[in-house]
């Protein structure tokens, strides 16, 4: 049960959150001119690092806001800066 720092509500139990996988996966600016292969990468291919992962969580049972954290996928440690307002900037 991780303690996840919601930048709006503070640290809360993992069960209050919904996981969103890798952060910063940008929707192609012009899908029509995106190749099938690039489109497949947008849809299905995500980083899967062993170590620090930049990922999205949504405080589903709280403020329902999405935010970004940097978590080590081996130790589950979340970077302390992620409780700060910087984490509020979130992109897919």
């Amino acid at each position: 049960m991780m303690l996840i720092p919601c930048p709006w509500c503070g640290p809360r139990n993992e069960i209050e959150f919904h996981y969103g996988g890798q952060a910063d996966v940008h929707y192609p600016s012009d899908p029509r001119s995106t190749s099938d292969e690039d489109w497949a990468h947008f849809l299905f291919f995500r980083d899967n690092p062993k170590g620090v992962f930049t990922e999205r969580w949504s405080h589903a049972a709280g403020c329902r806001r999405w935010f970004t954290v940097h978590r080590d996928t081996v130790t589950n440690e979340i970077h302390p800066d992620d409780s700060a307002s910087a984490a509020r900037t979130v992109t897919r």
């Binding site: 049960m1 991780m2 993992e14 996988g21 899967n48 062993k50 990922e55 978590r71 996928t73 589950n76």
Partner: peptide
């Protein structure tokens, strides 16, 4: 467990 992990352990809930 929903999150990515290589820890070979999951959450108790």
């Amino acid at each position: 467990d929903a999150h990515n992990s290589y820890s070979q352990r999951g959450a108790f809930h």
